[in-house]
C-alpha cells in the first residue's frame, strides 16, 4: 500500500520493521481481547472462583446463563425482546423517513432547499441533552411516558441519517432519473424503483448505525421507562447489576449475552461499516 520501502539490499531493515509491526499489532490485539476474554471466562466460573487467580474455571458452568435467563427477579428475555424490537422499529422508520428526505435534498430542485439543509446540518451539533429535556416534558404532556411509542417515535427522525443518505444519493448519476423522467415516471417511482435500490450500501450503513445506537441506548429509556415489562437491555443490566451485587459470574453472563448480538451484527456487516464511517465524516 502506501508506505512501502523500495530500497533494495536493506533486507534487515525491512525484516526489522516487519517484526516490530507484527509485535505491536499483536500487543494491541492482546490488550483489546483481554477484557473480553476475562468476561467470557468469568461468566462460566462458579462464584467462589471469581476471586481466585486461576484464569480458567476449574469446572465450566454454562448454567450461569440459564440462571440469568430464568431469573425470578428480572425477565432478561423480555429485555432482549424490547431492545431488539425498539431498535428494529426505529431503524426501519429512520431508513424510510431519512431516505425520503434525502431524495428531496439530493435529487430535487426546490426553493429554500439549501437553507433547510443547512438547518439540518446545524442541529447535528446540538448536544443530545439539550433536546432531551424538552422531549421528556413533551412525552409527559403527550402521555407517552412509559410506552414503546415514547421510545420509538422521537428516535425515528434522524438528521444524521438524512445527511448520510444524501451523501450517498449525490454519488448516483443524475442521467438515470433524467431518463426515467423522459419515460414519464413520477418522482415516487424514481425514488422507489431506481434510487432506493442504488442507495442500498448507504441504507445498510445507516441501518447498522441506527440499530446499534438504539440497541445500546441508555439515557432515554432510563428517564422514560418505568414499567418492568418495557425495560430495554441496558436498563435491565443496570438493575441486574444493582440487585445481584456480588454475583459477578451471573453479571458477566448477562453482559456476554448483551453484546453477542452486536458482535454477530458487526462481523457480518463490517465491510459495509468501514465505508460508511469514512463517508459519514466527509463534510457536506
Amino acid at each position: 500500500m502506501s508506505i512501502t520501502d523500495t530500497r533494495k539490499g536493506q533486507w534487515w531493515f525491512r525484516r526489522g520493521r516487519f517484526y516490530t509491526s507484527h509485535a505491536l499489532l499483536f500487543l494491541f490485539a492482546l490488550t483489546t481481547l483481554f477484557p473480553f476474554t476475562w468476561m467470557v471466562l468469568a461468566s462460566f466460573k462458579p462464584l467462589s472462583e471469581i476471586r481466585q487467580t486461576n484464569p480458567l474455571p476449574s469446572e465450566w458452568h454454562p448454567e450461569n446463563y440459564t440462571d440469568v435467563l430464568n431469573s425470578k427477579d428480572i425477565s432478561f428475555k423480555k429485555y432482549y425482546f424490547n431492545s431488539v424490537f425498539v431498535a428494529a422499529w426505529v431503524t426501519l422508520l429512520t431508513c424510510f423517513t431519512s431516505s425520503l428526505a434525502a431524495y428531496a435534498f439530493a435529487r430535487m430542485c426546490w426553493p429554500g432547499r439549501d437553507a433547510v439543509f443547512k438547518l439540518y446540518l446545524a442541529t447535528m451539533m446540538v448536544p443530545g441533552v439539550v433536546t432531551m429535556i424538552p422531549n421528556y416534558t413533551l412525552m409527559v404532556q403527550l402521555h407517552l411516558l412509559d410506552s414503546y411509542l415514547g421510545l420509538i417515535v422521537p428516535a425515528s427522525f434522524s438528521a444524521f441519517g438524512t445527511f448520510l443518505l444524501r451523501q450517498f444519493m449525490l454519488t448516483i448519476s443524475p442521467s438515470l432519473d433524467e431518463a426515467a423522467t423522459m419515460d414519464g415516471a413520477s418522482h415516487w417511482r424514481i425514488y422507489w424503483d431506481i434510487i432506493l435500490p442504488l442507495a442500498r450500501p448507504g441504507l445498510i450503513v445507516l441501518s447498522i448505525f441506527t440499530f446499534m445506537g438504539n440497541y445500546g441506548s441508555f439515557f432515554w429509556p432510563l428517564v422514560l421507562i418505568k414499567s418492568e415489562h418495557l425495560r430495554t437491555l441496558p436498563i435491565g443490566m443496570l438493575y441486574f447489576d444493582s440487585i445481584y451485587g456480588r454475583q459477578t459470574n451471573l453479571i458477566m453472563a448477562a453482559s456476554v449475552m448483551n453484546i453477542v448480538p452486536l458482535i454477530v451484527l458487526f462481523v457480518v456487516m463490517q465491510r459495509h461499516l468501514v465505508r460508511g464511517i469514512q463517508l459519514g465524516a466527509v463534510k457536506g
Partner: peptide, 15 residues
C-alpha cells in the same frame, strides 16, 4: 417527500 422527516425534525429536534 420531506414532510415525514421534517415534521419529526421540527417536533423532536428543532422545536
Amino acid at each position: 417527500f420531506l414532510l415525514p422527516n421534517f415534521l419529526g425534525f421540527v417536533i423532536f429536534t428543532f422545536g
